[in-house]
Design a protein around this nucleic acid. Structure first.
Lengths: 343, 343
DNA sequence: TTTAGCACTCTCGCCCCCTGAGTGCTAATT
DNA sequence: AATTAGCACTCAGGGGGCGAGAGTGCTAAA
């Protein structure tokens, strides 16, 4: 039995036991786990070495050992057995995604709910609607005769809104308005157009109201598309965890999670691995010291991009989390009807 | 000084002091509040009467008194001084609502966020999109030449979705498809139509895919429209409160709040008062014993209806909560461009 | 290099006591 | 009859002391 190897085994066992029970792990417990292949004294020696190397910590002198953040990092990088997403899991995820997506329309909301429900942990998502411009608008007269459905097309999305008017606008006028607006969109002269229109018709007139509504909708859509939307779902789940029994810690984490600005910093730091892991202090934020974030980017329709992930105590089950997220990523890809799955 | 009157004053003072400090209130504190208009002994006598009447409770013998649920009920019904929504507050709320609404599009999400942010408490919302049928669909060819924006009109809403196709569908074919589908919508024969179509063209064909996409979108929209969507925002805020320092209580409440089914029960119980209040055990749910719900219905555009409210400990500031919600209600009404505000 | 044995340390739960806040009752006062 | 002063009583909460149990590090033997 190679010494290095035994130490790695011991470290792995400590981490896995701690993930499972949230209790510090003692030498005797470990000896049991290894069915006394080596004695508790041997294990004590190794553990004391591992402590010096910075992988283990003692809450106090007689409490067994707890993995350090460095240990978790080593664990996810090297020690952990990597499961890979099972096809039936991907399939379940895909169905769920399809359902929820039509139920919510909001991609981020759907993503965070699914991942939270499936993993039983707190889920989060950030979706940045890439800063796209509106390319074209359409106006559709509604059956009530005095409302128009305004439809905007960007490169990859449709958005629509009802514009209600106090009076009737003739379809011909609406058609003209549409043509005029579409003409101005490309040249970025919408507000100019609105000013011009204001001079030729009264501001009270329905046609003007319609124009105003359309222009505002376009502006809002373009502005919105630059923003990032964050969701946190199932926040109560992390409260069940041992480490957040301490009310102060729980509160601080909840606060951090609802602080959208800070959270988005983490997500910006995404690297190129499919599933990214941030362990405790790797996020530069004291309130998140005891939590880890596991997340992945995903695409739907090849265009709308997002980040979805799981927040849990640092002693979370990283293997499971990675598995769920990989499944989600795959599932989202399969939703895309006009591209083949690559990976 | 009429005795009845004094007792009411004392009860009011107990409640308000408790709302403020979350500490049981003793006779001496009260004597101070009344600037020794009556002695602590007198107050003790009255308090003991009030206790017998069920309005006050003792956590233990030497801890001062705490209002009972009945006391809060009496307070909101009779004792409390009713503030009314200030116009500048309504105005601020309206602006906020306009912003957020365009930012989120999701009415419920916007409502819960606004009310949570403004009140500094946990906010929630439930929006039922009244079970409306799709009346008409439109298809708009996108610039990429092989995607169609599918737009659905119900009586009061527009919904849109991009349908991407692997191949090109000729605009004439799309126009025909649209006409056919619109013909079938009113007679509820969509699935029949799809079957029929399947017989005349291959299921692989783009036209069929398009038809399928449209029909699915219609079905989803109609199903969705019967559902209720719930949001809870700023859940961490209630954790700051004294009464939820107890982790078990906090967890239970959070659990209850994320249990969408149960929460919707409360909301169904809305009565006809503009702002409805449910105090602790008035909700038949042990996990919510220590919380009160203050909520109101609102309408935007005269059509989309919802419920929005505040959850807080039973000792919340009911006056403020009511004020915020009344403001919100007003603000939502003013958003509606084609109806005059009535109230 | 591994293991058995042992003394040592520290947390945690328990009990006890003390203090302070607030009460209820009684008797005196208005 | 209503109010008030005075006093004995109760009880939660904090602090200190104590013992049990868990786990360690060290030493010496295998």
């Amino acid at each position: 039995m190679d010494l290095r190897d035994r130490r790695r085994k011991i470290l792995k066992a400590v981490i896995e036991s701690y993930i499972d029970t949230a209790e510090p792990v003692g030498s005797k417990t470990l000896a049991d786990i290894f069915e006394n292949a080596f004695s508790s004294a041997t294990i004590r020696n190794d553990m004391s070495e591992l402590e010096e190397m910075g992988y283990l910590e003692k809450p106090h002198v007689s409490a067994g050992r707890v993995p350090s953040y460095a240990a978790y990092r080593l664990y996810v990088n090297e020690l952990m057995e990597k499961r890979h997403a099972l096809s039936f899991e991907i399939e379940a995820m895909r169905r769920e995604l399809e359902n929820k997506l039509s139920e919510f329309e909001d991609l981020g909301l759907a993503a965070s709910r699914i991942i939270s429900a499936m993993s039983g942990q707190t889920g989060f998502s950030a979706v940045k609607t890439a800063g796209e411009r509106v390319k074209r608008c359409e106006l559709i007269l509604c059956d009530d005769g005095h409302s128009y459905a305004c439809v905007l097309l960007t490169g990859s999305e449709v958005k629509s809104r009802m514009i209600r008017l106090p009076f009737i606008v003739a379809p011909e006028d609406a058609a003209m308005l549409k043509a005029a607006i579409n003409g101005c969109i490309s040249e970025n002269k919408l507000s100019l157009f609105l000013n011009m229109l204001a001079r030729s018709v009264s501001a009270e007139e329905a046609l003007f109201k319609l124009a105003e509504g359309v222009v505002r909708f376009i502006e809002e859509t373009e502005n919105e598309s630059e923003s990032v939307k964050l969701h946190v779902e199932g926040a109560e789940k992390i409260l069940n965890m041992r480490e957040f029994q301490d009310t102060r810690k729980a509160r601080e984490l909840m606060e951090y999670l609802s602080d959208k600005k800070v959270l988005s910093d983490i997500l910006d730091s995404e690297d190129d691995t499919p599933v990214c892991i941030k362990i405790g202090p790797e996020i530069d934020e004291p309130r998140a010291r005891d939590a880890s974030f596991v997340f992945t980017t995903f695409t739907v329709d090849g265009a709308r991009r997002g980040v979805v992930g799981i927040v849990a105590p640092t002693r979370m089950d990283y293997g499971k989390a990675i598995e769920y997220l990989a499944s989600f990523r795959q599932a989202a890809k399969q939703l895309n009807p006009h591209k083949k799955t690559e990976e």
